[in-house]
Lab assay of single mutants.
Amino acid sequence: NITNLCPFDEVFNATRFASVYAWNRKRISNCVADYSVLYNLAPFFTFKCYGVSPTKLNDLCFTNVYADSFVIRGDEVRQIAPGQTGNIADYNYKLPDDFTGCVIAWNSNKLDSKVSGNYNYLYRLFRKSNLKPFERDISTEIYQAGNKPCNGVAGFNCYFPLRSYSFRPTYGVGHQPYRVVVLSFELLHAPATVCGPKKST
């Protein structure tokens, strides 16, 4: 009989979030998941669920729940959905087409922007091929755009693959930082360890 609440607040209220290319994953298990708490945590810009209804979450049980978190800019949030393409979905964080879970995003301009520009958040701009779903690539190998090998040196047709967002508070919403948490629900042929409040007794 599990009584402890799932530590969603640790994920959502973390002081620092990860850069999207090096997104963070927390496995959540053996706890009571009260998803209604999430609705009250922040004024969400996005709370979209796929393959599951957000209002039914509190009635369900899962084997595992994974919470992935990272920062992107406002106009990239739409890429965090099944079947999307674009720089983020292709080279940084890719959801599977049959994704079961929820994408939660909110504006973090007050936390993640600086007047002089916050350069701490990076994204991958160049990659030889698209990522597979939930693949994480943290390599910093020089990207070869031409025929000549780069031998690890940046220059003509040889690019450092990561680029930094420079978040400034005066930017338009599309270029402001957004914190994203992706909850993916895993149903294996194994005992369910993460249940809503109704199912945990």
Rank of each mutant, 00 (worst) to 15 (best):
residue 180 V to M: 07
residue 175 H to P: 00
residue 107 N to G: 05
residue 27 R to C: 09
residue 100 T to S: 10
residue 176 Q to R: 02
residue 144 Q to N: 15
residue 191 P to L: 08
residue 16 R to N: 15
residue 92 N to M: 03
residue 40 N to H: 13
residue 22 A to G: 08
residue 58 N to A: 13
residue 108 S to Y: 01
residue 194 V to S: 11
residue 194 V to G: 11
residue 70 F to M: 05
residue 61 C to R: 07
residue 153 V to A: 14
residue 120 N to H: 13
residue 175 H to L: 01
residue 154 A to Y: 05
residue 69 S to Y: 09
residue 79 Q to H: 05
residue 84 Q to W: 07
residue 127 R to Y: 02
residue 198 K to E: 13
residue 30 N to H: 12
residue 118 N to P: 06
residue 190 A to Q: 12
residue 199 K to Y: 15
residue 7 P to M: 10
residue 112 D to T: 03
residue 173 V to S: 10
residue 37 V to D: 09
residue 191 P to E: 13
residue 76 E to R: 03
residue 152 G to M: 07
residue 163 R to Q: 15
residue 42 A to Y: 13
residue 110 K to N: 11
residue 113 S to W: 02
residue 47 F to T: 12
residue 30 N to S: 09
residue 60 L to K: 10
residue 2 I to L: 14
residue 169 P to D: 02
residue 42 A to I: 13
residue 156 F to I: 08
residue 73 R to D: 01
residue 176 Q to S: 02
residue 66 Y to H: 08
residue 51 G to I: 04
residue 115 V to Q: 11
residue 76 E to I: 03
residue 112 D to W: 04
residue 74 G to L: 02
residue 161 P to I: 04
residue 127 R to I: 01
residue 19 S to H: 04
residue 124 R to C: 00
residue 1 N to A: 11
residue 71 V to S: 02
residue 187 L to Y: 12
residue 102 C to S: 02
residue 166 S to D: 01
residue 100 T to M: 14
residue 196 G to T: 11
residue 146 G to V: 02
residue 19 S to F: 02
residue 35 Y to Q: 09
residue 1 N to M: 10
residue 144 Q to C: 04
residue 119 Y to C: 06
residue 133 P to L: 03
residue 154 A to F: 05
residue 47 F to M: 15
residue 145 A to N: 06
residue 61 C to P: 10
residue 114 K to A: 10
residue 6 C to K: 05
residue 13 N to A: 09
residue 33 A to V: 14
residue 6 C to Y: 06
residue 75 D to G: 14
residue 60 L to I: 12
residue 163 R to G: 15
residue 85 T to H: 15
residue 181 V to N: 02
residue 123 Y to D: 01
residue 190 A to H: 13
residue 19 S to C: 06
residue 152 G to H: 09
residue 99 F to I: 04
residue 169 P to T: 04
residue 82 P to V: 05
residue 6 C to T: 06
residue 41 L to P: 11
residue 169 P to L: 04
residue 130 N to H: 14
residue 117 G to D: 03
residue 95 L to T: 04
residue 137 D to N: 03
